[in-house]
């Protein structure tokens, strides 16, 4: 899939995803070792984007399983199309039961869900299991079989093994501690907030209209805010939002008024805004 780590960074950059060395290395290894990639990190640093970018680079189909509380086998793996099966039964009235039975448990009546879809496909596939921490613990057990052997067992049809291993990305916001067993099967990647230099490049890429000096100030202020131990530290998404806001407002330098008026774009809690205002010597809001 990739020839080297630099190849990964370069090709991801072409799709508009600027990867840090850690991200590029881990993606390269995940492709080379054929292991799933578990990505953790705060919201808005581009975990889901990474999977999309990899899919685009590899010209692969992106299959996405969005996890939520209560997601189960029939939503993640496969389901029998009961309505269609009933129709089939009532259509063939004078058949023997054996004929009907072998027929209604065939491919035609199977509804593949994301996990099965990703495994059965012949074309290159990126399987994104998003927000794994939202799913219940039972769901993890299901993932274990799929992720370690890349196979799924459907009792009526037998075991389906992947002919071509999908590139698997699991994301988690660490809302719940994932089990050690699941972590063991994956390469672990923590995407934190980017280095200043990288963030400047991201802002320049996403908001090209913003001036050089202003971009630099924006990134510096956001960096200082992150060091403040706030309830919700601003993420890359917020930096970009802020840059867009400043561009829309037509500001050409950061000054006290501008920062005070737009602080709500980057900080989402009143406590945080007050704390930041105090630390940045802004006058009372």
């Amino acid at each position: 899939m990739f020839t080297s780590v630099d190849d990964v960074s370069a090709r991801l950059a072409e799709t508009g995803y600027l990867a840090s060395p850690a991200v590029a290395t881990t993606v390269f290894l995940a492709a080379r070792l054929g292991k799933p990639l578990l990505v953790e990190g705060p919201a808005g640093v581009g975990k889901t984007e990474l999977a999309k970018a990899v899919a685009q680079v590899a010209a692969a189909r992106l299959v996405r399983l969005q996890c939520y509380e209560g997601v189960d086998e029939s939503r993640a793996l496969y389901e029998w199309n009961h309505a269609k099966q009933l129709l089939r039964i009532s259509a063939g009235r004078d058949e023997s039961w054996d004929e009907t039975r072998t027929d209604i448990f065939s491919e035609e009546f199977l509804l593949p869900r994301p996990l099965l879809t990703a495994i059965r496909g012949d074309e290159p596939t990126v399987l994104l299991i998003d927000e794994t921490d939202k799913a219940d613990v039972e769901m993890e057990g299901l993932l274990l079989e799929v992720l370690s052997d890349f196979q799924v067992t459907v009792p009526e049809l037998g075991t389906v093994t992947a002919t071509r291993r999908p590139f698997v990305v699991l994301t988690s916001n660490a809302g719940r501690e994932l089990s050690e067993a699941l972590r063991r099967r994956c390469l672990f990647l923590h995407i934190g907030f980017p280095e200043e230099e990288l963030e400047r490049r991201i802002v320049r890429l996403k908001v090209p209209g913003l001036g050089q000096a202003l971009t630099e100030s924006v990134v510096r202020v956001v960096g200082a805010l992150r060091a403040m131990d706030l309830r919700k530290a601003p993420s890359v998404a917020e930096t970009v939002d802020w840059a867009r806001t400043l561009l829309a407002l037509g500001a050409d330098t950061l000054d006290e008024t501008v920062v005070r008026d737009t602080l709500g774009v980057i900080l989402k809690h009143q406590d945080d805004i007050q704390k930041a205002a105090a630390k940045l010597d802004l006058e009372a809001l």
Partner: peptide, 26 residues
């Protein structure tokens, strides 16, 4: 296997590669 794939030329790549394979949490 990660070391084999990455080579020993770049120390920072090696660091990231080993961290990805050996660690399970931040």
């Amino acid at each position: 296997r990660a070391v084999e794939a990455l080579g020993l030329a770049d120390r920072e790549l090696l660091r990231e590669g080993l961290a990805a394979t050996l660690l399970h949490g931040p």
